[in-house]
Write a protein that binds this DNA or RNA. Structure first.
Length: 333
DNA sequence: AATGGACCCAACCGCCCAGGT
DNA sequence: CACCTGGGCGGTTGGGTCCAT
């Protein structure tokens, strides 16, 4: 037997709360608890919890709050109530909205603006000759496999302002290995045209990002897996999308003849389905906290190496991260 | 000034679970 | 044990606002 409705839907008011209703609810709760309103109990509860109850914080989130949210999101995923528990005055709904509408984008902006050497990149496009060594050889521990973890471990400072950059990775970047950071201009397909987006993808490369024999760029999904794509002098669209969990890889290569550097992989963000288990979910949309197996190996989240209580302690102890602990744990796998 | 798209966020929906009967 | 109920939670929606054209 299914669950009974929480209220008589025909006889309850819905929609935004009026100031009169707010005052009434507050008054009732202060005097008698809930009752008397033509509101479903659930609605009253939510209104109270998210808006009316004392000491609710509204307005801007601080950098410190950002860090806490990012760290916990990286560790335990979208368990907003637990995250809210670490932020006095903030509600799970608030944090959820903040994450979905701002923080996620802010993180990407951080990576663009605050990664060392990025100024150079902003002034110069990559070419075969100037491909920034940082992105060729800079390795991060596998546990730092998402923007939020990079932020939460202090790799990136929490302030941000995002702006588009032009970026590509070229045939010259042959030293791409696992956990190498690659930043790419994001494009998307709109009415059969390729449209430049203001956002930027952060992608982890692996050995597959370059066909070493043919020296051709290849697609690289957020989990580091990818396939080889033939370069042409025109934008090439192949509708052979593969779902890598984190992104759809469009298999598009843009070879700009004017400057022989704009070989840009086109990728499109893909919102993960909650049902995507057993696949790596990539950089941006990672289902962290789940022990998933990507195409090219395994990922570890902080939760693999720490318990929830330890994570809380880590947060309060200024985010020091014990690399050896992760490595020890990896050894035992 | 009009309009359409993007963005934000309060509120709703539906599922799960614990506790009471 | 089965059923009922409400709390808790994460995902989603839709209306208001902003902003670019």
């Amino acid at each position: 037997m299914g669950r009974a409705p929480c209220c008589d839907k025909a006889n309850v008011k819905k929609g935004p709360w009026s100031p009169e209703e707010d005052a009434k609810l507050k008054d009732y709760i202060e005097k008698f608890g809930t009752g008397g309103l033509k509101r479903c109990g659930k609605s009253c509860r939510l209104r109270w919890l998210n808006y009316l109850r004392p000491n609710i914080k509204h307005g801007e989130f601080s950098d410190e709050e950002d860090r806490i949210i990012c760290s916990l999101y990286d560790s335990i995923g979208s368990r907003w109530s637990i995250i809210a528990g670490q932020l006095p005055g903030r509600t799970d709904n608030d944090i959820k909205n903040y994450w979905n509408t701002k923080l996620k984008k802010k993180l990407m902006g951080n990576i663009i603006t605050n990664t060392p050497n990025l100024n150079i990149i902003n002034q110069k496009k990559f070419t075969n000759n100037n491909f920034n060594p940082m992105f060729q050889n800079h390795h991060y521990p596998s546990s730092l496999s998402s923007p939020s973890s990079l932020l939460s471990h202090g790799v990136l400072p929490p302030s941000s302002s995002s702006y588009p950059i032009t970026m590509s990775f070229s045939e010259g970047c042959s030293n791409v290995n696992n956990n190498t950071l690659i930043l790419m201009q994001n494009y998307h397909q709109h009415h059969h045209q390729v449209v430049k987006d203001n956002s930027t993808l952060l992608v982890f490369g692996n050995d597959e990002t370059i066909d070493r024999q043919q020296q051709q760029p290849a697609s690289c999904s957020s989990d580091g897996s990818g396939t080889i794509t033939q370069i042409t002098n025109q934008v090439k669209l192949e509708d052979n999308r593969q779902n890598y969990g984190g992104f759809y890889s469009n298999q598009v290569v843009n070879h700009n003849q004017e400057d022989d550097q704009a070989k840009v992989l086109l990728m499109e963000e893909q919102k993960p389905s909650s049902a995507t288990t057993g696949v790596n979910t990539g950089v941006l949309w990672g289902q962290n906290g789940q022990n998933t197996t990507p195409a090219g190996g395994t990922t570890t989240s902080l939760l693999d190496n720490y318990g929830l209580e330890e994570i809380k302690q880590l947060i309060s102890s200024n985010y020091s991260f014990d690399e050896t602990k992760a490595e020890e744990k990896d050894m035992t796998k």
